[in-house]
Design a protein around this nucleic acid. Sequence first.
DNA 1: AGCTGTGAACATATTCACAGCC
DNA 2: GGCTGTGAATATGTTCACAGCT
Lengths: 190, 190
Amino acid sequence: MADNLSTVSSANLAEAANVNPAKVRKDLSYLGSNGTRGVGYDRMQLCFEIRGHLGLYHESPIIIMGAGNLGSALANYSEFSNSGFYVVGIYDLDPDRIGTAINGQKIRHIHDLEADVSTHGVTIGVITTPPEAAQETAERMVAAGIQSILNFAPTVIHVAESVNVRRVDLSTELQILSYYRGQHPEEQAS
Amino acid sequence: MADNLSTVSSANLAEAANVNPAKVRKDLSYLGSNGTRGVGYDRMQLCFEIRGHLGLYHESPIIIMGAGNLGSALANYSEFSNSGFYVVGIYDLDPDRIGTAINGQKIRHIHDLEADVSTHGVTIGVITTPPEAAQETAERMVAAGIQSILNFAPTVIHVAESVNVRRVDLSTELQILSYYRGQHPEEQAS
DNA sequence: AGCTGTGAACATATTCACAGCC
DNA sequence: GGCTGTGAATATGTTCACAGCT
């Protein structure tokens, strides 16, 4: 790791990310050939290129559906601002929660959703509702104009094919760990 | 979907999970052949089989490192109890938080970690610390006897190969959505 | 007839290995 | 000499398609 300051090699990156150097090179090659043979990748150029490809130069507004513990945690998640996202609203049905502020964000009633989405041009929404409300919530989000959904509720939601859905299930993650424990001593990620 | 009550077909399951029926069958076949040709899978037997394979018949103790918003949210996450996990301790360094209770769970000082892990025989730990503390925390967990780590900190941690690590990065999830938006109208998950 | 279980076909992802450039 | 970029080789994952059981 005799680090040159302005440059980084696929081997360096691979070590940091716990992956194979060839994979780093192949993946980066899809963004165009930005490295210099015999030298490596220019750090700044690489950052620039990656951020560009991820669309992080325009900050994207997101909404959070459900102001329970997880929704509140996400509203406070400062990492989002470093990653090109900002929360424009947190929505709930519970009258006790509505109007309460989380990290400067007022919790809003779900009937403000449609207006907010169109005002701010939001296309990404996060579901942190209880599982039984997730499907209905998803449908309402889609109807309001949301195109991409990150679903933390432990349910599979069904929406139009054109809507992008990713599911993150915390229990499932633990179950996967639990399953691998003792069975496969190999690393599967990092 | 002419549902028989005690039996379920790979097509039923596939529809619910948004995947291909053949995949369901192939996956289930790894647990042994539990279906009946011409009929389907017996619901109860299937549940039993899957729970067994995931090791959910013995409840597993877990610990949570970091009592910030996310750690607190996880401590309250009721779905864990339905999935075979229970939280034996939440640990933090902040003196203002220690002793405070979250959902009946007292936040404990990190120096109780080693004793608690060995007393309860904990093998799974969750990291919800700030990123700069994650590596150190992971090392301490491993030294205490933790064998599987679920890492929510936006950092890649490096530990012995024998330790199972899964990373869940909330910003990355959004970035993936953001990347796919507009590019691939196909579904990638559910 | 209906549905599982699975080899074979296909698709995708990862790694190797080396030519080509600096 | 050192490191990228990439075809070819390998490994893994998914789907097809159908034989075989009920």
